[in-house]
Nucleic acid binder design. Structure first.
Lengths: 242, 242
DNA sequence: CGGATTCTTGACTACGGTCAACGGAAGTGG
DNA sequence: CCACTTCCGTTGACCGTAGTCAAGAATCCG
């Protein structure tokens, strides 16, 4: 029994059981529909109190936030399977904006159903919490990167993480994957200047570790890259058995 | 009807309803007991798969993580009301360690009951997710701080956040509160060196904005401090109405 | 074609890191 | 009681990573 919602963490089957008939019906109701957006489309705005939540089904996006002085911080890149809008749903306000960077397909949920959803589908509620915990885990790592890693270490770390995410999603072919962001995006994600980011990327290319041109990221030596980035190349986080 | 667990987000009353008799009974069962620890005691270790979760009832602690090269990053400071161990509960592994910095009282929960808890108490499950979202929100802000703020901005931001948290918890008396951490802790939280942190704190003291000696934080001019830290002095996050 | 956006490279600068030394406080042990 | 150690905070001198400024090339687009 397949749903249309591949990659949607709230529609996929549980590890040990498939959805019951009623469950499926409810999820259909909870799911308002699918949304397709073009590159550059804002999906949720920082500070907004949007009535919708989404899961990314395909395509890539970016989360960022702006300080009052105009500086921009990229929080993370959005991959298929990511949940968008949790903060609006439970806090009533987004702490960052989300924007599509490629053509994206999104599964749309209605926030007004969220509480009902939580009450009647504890297994899916658990999924949401799981996603939140994964994000929290990632942000902790990102924090350590900005705080403790040098530019070359930070960039290596970022490329490794992106590449691993791509691997686990099947986006990698022959050691390369689409990564349609700008150097400014990466710079803003790592708290580096554009210029320094550019020069550091050049170093990695020189050393034949990784290259990233025209939106294509190629990783030639994941091992050393991970070593420079002070990360392990271990398996990504799996959903636990419940 | 008061519980012993003041500040515990999972025992407090809901905004609109108090706990039912059954609910209370279950919470008593879910709650394994209270734990009291002395300063310096590790509560959860990074990478561990502990069978317990906690909520902080009183006292202060610190979350940190270590890179493989030995560098240390402080993730956040633990205040009363914080939830400890979500990552272990849903991911099976902590992404950071938690250590007590003062005498602490903790409410202990049993992880094996977590799933049951989620199923039978959607309202409390929602609380857990709410806490996760708050943490995620905070980490996004911290990320922006490390990435985009200068040393003096970052330190101002941190002091404002701590002070605000203290205010909302009633830990502030006459513009001052206990903040029993070291300059190294703050430095590691903000990705600054100890020396530079020290010198920057001295500047804030010179300018009569805030002082922090012997574990006592005094804030003399919250307005300007917030301005330097590029933060607003708005109200802290409240639990939404459900 | 002009304008916008991104990437690239060079020259200069500065914020913040590193090293080092010292003082005070608190704990330890002979 | 007093050496001895450890931890924390403080200050000065020096230096390097990364930021800023600036200019040019490549690409895309109206």
């Amino acid at each position: 029994m397949t749903t249309q919602c591949q990659h949607c963490p709230l529609h996929r089957k549980n590890l040990f059981k498939t959805m019951s008939r009623e469950e499926l019906e409810f999820m259909q109701k909870f799911k308002v529909g699918e949304l397709t957006v073009e590159p550059g489309t804002p999906i949720l705005m920082e500070g907004s109190n949007a009535p919708q939540m989404y899961t990314a089904l395909s395509g890539l996006g970016i989360r960022d936030t702006s300080l009052k002085n105009g500086e921009r911080q990229v929080i993370s890149f959005v991959f298929p399977g990511d949940f968008i809008g949790l903060q609006a749903a439970v806090l009533g306000e987004m702490g960052h904006s989300i924007e599509a960077r490629t053509h994206m397909r999104l599964c749309v949920f209605d926030r007004s159903e969220f509480w009902h959803f939580f009450r009647t589908h504890p297994s899916r509620a658990f999924d949401v919490t799981w996603l939140a915990a994964v994000e929290e885990h990632f942000l902790g790592e990102a924090l350590a990167t900005l705080g403790q890693r040098s530019a070359i270490q930070a960039i290596s770390w970022a490329l490794v993480r992106v590449y691993q995410r791509g691997l686990s999603l099947g986006l990698v072919t022959q050691s390369q994957m689409a990564f349609p962001f700008t150097q400014r995006d990466l710079a803003d994600a790592l708290g580096l200047s554009l210029v320094h980011t550019n020069k550091t990327l050049a170093k990695l290319k020189d050393r034949q570790l990784a290259s990233w041109n025209d939106g294509i990221l190629k990783v030639h030596d994941l091992e050393t890259l991970a070593e420079i980035g002070i990360t392990s190349v271990d398996t990504p986080m799996e959903r636990p058995l419940m």
